[in-house]
């Protein structure tokens, strides 16, 4: 059974772009974000439209940053959290480019990267855009409560990131190379608390990371950084415990994009989450650091909780997934 794909031609990430809301722009990665929004609604009538426009802006700017023209782009692989991934569809409606919509909840970004890297590595296509987005307000109304409802959040909850990130993979050019990718499997340990997504996703992240090291023969010390997507503070702790049980120590190498994105203050509790979380942090902070060669080898493990509001109302547990993409400069 193969779950790790080794890319022989090693597609390169030639350009990225990020868009983020005011709360994210006040966080710890603010200086790396390209488009900083002053309002959550981005001048649109609804938050769904705003999210779509954020994704559109990120895709457009990433193509410009990669010094490509729109007609040189062969495909866009994109996804988001909303029902029927409408943000991605409406964002790509403005481009006359082949489109693949992908969904793996918050793990969508690495799924998109894996699919994009396969297209480029197989020499089917030259330039592929991989992008994801999420929006706090649109996710909140789909999964939880109206914004103005005066309810409290439990301490294990996370805060959906308002942000979009996009990157251009290319067969030629300069930038970090994608060397391999480990595709995750669904791991479900029976967590039913929809507020505790860190605990639901951590076993999937542990499974993918352990499988990645087994398939590649690498160890955590081979990476400068192992970045999980949006496990949050609690999920990260669980992940470290789970892999430690199997004799792998992530302590020194691990960082969580969800923990990184905000200056953790109380209202976000465990940190950021959402499909836009890992793509925003990667497209801004991590990509810049890779370009500067501060991070030479990166394992990006975006994690997703594959629940719907219907499935949790029916008492189903939360299936987790994590896809890992390995990059180096």
């Amino acid at each position: 059974m193969t779950r790790t794909i080794f890319f022989k031609n090693q597609p390169r990430i030639v350009g990225t772009s990020s868009v983020a809301g005011p709360k994210e722009c006040a966080g710890s990665i603010k200086e790396y974000i390209q488009t900083k929004l002053e309002n959550d609604d981005y001048g649109e009538k609804s938050f769904e439209k705003a999210e779509s426009r954020m994704l559109y802006t990120a895709i457009k700017n990433s193509i410009i940053n990669a010094k490509r023209k729109e007609d040189e782009i062969d495909a866009i692989v994109a996804g988001d959290l909303l029902n029927q991934i409408t943000s991605s569809t409406f964002a790509t409606r403005n481009f006359s480019v082949a489109y693949l919509g992908v969904y793996n909840a918050c793990a969508t970004f690495t799924e998109a990267l894996t699919v994009g890297a396969m297209l480029v590595d197989g020499k089917y296509m030259n330039n592929v855009v991989c992008a994801t987005s999420s929006h706090f307000a649109s996710a909140e109304r789909q999964y939880r409560y109206p914004l103005e409802l005066g309810c409290t959040r439990p301490p294990q909850s996370q805060w959906t990131v308002t942000g979009a990130g996009s990157c251009v993979l290319s067969a030629n050019g300069t930038g970090p190379k994608i060397t391999c990718a480990t595709i995750g499997k669904i791991v479900d340990y029976g967590v039913t608390d929809a507020n505790n997504m860190g605990a639901a996703m951590a076993p999937a992240a542990a499974d993918t990371i352990l499988r990645h090291f087994k398939d590649t023969g690498l160890s955590p010390s081979d990476y400068d950084l192992i970045a999980s997507g949006d496990l949050g503070a609690l999920g990260s702790r669980i992940l470290k415990d789970l892999v430690w049980e199997k004799g792998v120590n992530l302590e020194k190498r691990h960082v969580d994009c969800g923990e990184l994105v905000y200056n953790l203050i109380e209202s976000e509790f465990q940190g950021g989450s959402g499909a836009g979380c890992s793509s925003l942090v990667f497209s801004s902070y991590l990509y810049t650091k890779m370009k500067e060669k501060k991070i030479k080898r990166l394992l990006l493990v975006a994690t997703g909780a594959l629940l719907s509001s219907t499935s949790s109302q029916q008492g189903e547990s939360i299936p987790g997934i994590a896809h890992a993409v390995s990059m180096e400069v």
């Binding site: 340990y189 029976g190 967590v191 415990d241």
Partner: peptide
């Protein structure tokens, strides 16, 4: 699917209200 050990462990590390 339920993994009792894991759920008990999660309960023990979960921050309390």
């Amino acid at each position: 699917c339920i993994n009792r050990n894991y759920l008990n462990y999660v309960k023990s590390v979960c921050p309390k209200t």
